[in-house]
Nucleic acid binder design. Structure first.
Lengths: 337, 337
DNA sequence: CAGCTTTCTGTAATCGATTACATCAGTCTC
DNA sequence: GAGACTGATGTAATCGATTACAGAAAGCTG
């Protein structure tokens, strides 16, 4: 339409000053009732919409939060981001997103641009020096990095690995392979640690294959598993995607899940219950994680209070479906070949 | 850190005026070489970062694009949004996202806030009156609505449906069921039209079940299919998710794919190739769609040129995997029961 | 009714950048 | 060396809102 309507136009239309218009919109209690009505009428008559840049500049707060994720294309994040956006919208905050792997210069420019007044950080692998220098409130979500010295929220990954082992052990499995995520990833490390601990506590050997979170990594792991001399009877994978890759490659190699190997995933993505076989997996409450992190950040922003310290850890929850089953020694006493 | 560094601080540190600093940063050619060096040194010494709100206000353009999608949690969008973000970042634009189903008031506020100077719209079901009133450049992506009278980009959905039918017909299938998306959705409509056209062109009956894009819709469709008197030998589903739901429910009901029924999906999501069986499906080049739409929008914004008119339609591409197979009449000549 | 509150509204400074215009120094030309 | 021109820099207005402060009007008290 016509050139943008400014607050001065509304003021003119209502026969008041711009100050009164501004007050009517942001703190109506300060304005007389009749004036208020006149102003509101002028607002809708002119179709006035506030100019965010001007407001942000004056108020010194952009009323927006920035979400940084290592890979926006990853389905794992979409539900989390949706939940964050939901909370933010209800609080009247905009949501800006960026790939956190954009390069430190770009990232600094984005973070320091003054466009956001709080950050949800889903990446634990950024340079700590950079992150520590950020002056906005930041909350870590899912991944973390002790070098950042920031508060955060995540599930208890080590406990999750223990729960997975508990489940498999209860089914009688003793040779369990852990196809882990990337070695440098904190999630991988925490889960590996939990896995190792649970296995050694039972006096079982902790077999770990450095894999990855992707379908391809899972498929590759299937070959590694198939080539093992004394094949593990159960596999605990880094992610559901990894599990899907593993299972579907096993299938291609002539093995069946759970007949030949029990598989347990991680994340409980939407497909997990509809895969063939339906996948036993550690549930990550992604909507809840996103919502809770956003709420903590948003309320800190609105009250201008510090975020508080420390990590919230959500206890793990195992969803048992059909990709795991009790171990029965095959061809009892038979040879390996 | 310390209170924010402003351009005046840099100017003071370099012993020049703010105008010179500003020019050094935005049009270096106008500034003498020695001065430029001095300014740049002052910039890095002070750690100056431009204040986006102030720049946006003065320049009257926020250098950001807004992505509106009907459901941010949907995995279909994540890769598209990632691609958009990529293009935008390289052009120095921020990306704001919002669920387009937030309600018209909220949406108007977001769109008219002046925070974005262009929109990528992934939703074809917003009120046309509202969308037509938007003064920013908008490009429609994937979905569309003729009522908006806006340019856009999408794959040729009708042609895609025809390709699917061609493939199934070539395999000898004559009774084909189309499990369509939601009836009010443009994609559903276009694909239904293509399906109907291709079927009638062959003199085959066009069976259509109103389903949906979700796993649940697919699972429900499996029951409908199973209960049909003369069961179709092939199914063309609304989406890969729908296909997964269909296949996995079939499996639960004791049917196997493609032995008992060939299934063809739509979208070619990441899992499609790793599902069991690997899914034959229509490929949607999501990264390319996102990139191309973003490029068109971004270049219009940077050159301050209009977006141009009309839809770009990408020809469909069928990926043949293992969920479809040649039809062989069972129990040749046997009875139906 | 004077004096004091209270309530409402207006004036003008302000946020931090950009940029039109003015100024100034140096170079070139005749 | 005067005048014209070029290139570099500074001054100050400007973008559109918010808000401290001031002032006016109305209400209350004794």
């Amino acid at each position: 339409m016509s050139p943008r309507v400014r607050i001065a136009d509304v003021a003119a239309a209502a026969g008041v000053s711009t100050a009164t218009v501004s007050r009517t919109l942001s703190s109506p209690g300060l304005v007389g009732e009749k004036t208020r009505e006149r102003v509101m009428a002028a607002v809708s008559a002119t179709g006035y919409r506030i100019n965010a840049a001007a407001r942000d500049l004056r108020r010194q707060q952009p009323r927006a939060i920035l979400v940084l994720a290592p890979n926006l294309a990853n389905t794992f994040f979409s539900r989390i981001i949706a939940a964050i956006q939901d909370v933010a919208r209800q609080a009247g905050l905009a949501v800006q997103i960026s790939d956190s792997r954009a390069g430190t210069d770009v990232l600094e420019a984005i973070v320091q641009s003054g466009r956001a007044d709080g950050i949800v950080l889903l990446d634990g692998a950024l340079p700590p020096d950079m992150v520590r220098n950020w002056t906005l409130p930041v909350i870590q979500l899912c991944e973390w990095n002790d070098g950042y010295a920031l508060p955060g929220l995540r599930i208890d990954n080590a406990a999750a690995a223990r729960v997975a082992v508990d489940h498999l052990a209860a089914l009688g499995h003793e040779r369990i392979l852990h196809v882990s995520g990337p070695a440098e990833n904190v999630l991988s490390q925490a889960r590996q640690a939990g896995f190792r601990e649970a296995m050694t506590a039972r006096g079982l050997p902790a077999d770990i294959h450095d894999g990855g979170f992707t379908i391809e990594a899972g498929a590759a792991a299937a070959h590694v598993w198939a080539a093992m001399a004394d094949r593990p009877t159960a596999v605990f994978t880094a992610s559901d995607e990894c599990a899907f890759g593993f299972i579907s490659e096993c299938y291609r190699l002539g093995f069946e899940v759970p007949r030949d190997v029990s598989v347990i995933g991680f994340d409980d993505v939407d497909f997990a219950g509809h895969f063939i076989p339906p996948l036993t997996t550690i549930h990550q409450p992604r909507a809840r994680l996103g919502r809770q992190a956003a709420e903590r950040l948003v309320s800190a922003l609105l009250e201008d209070a510090p975020l508080g310290e420390g990590y919230d850890q959500i206890p793990p929850h195992l969803v048992i479906r059909s990709s795991t089953t009790a171990y029965r020694a095959k061809t009892q006493g038979g040879s390996a070949a």
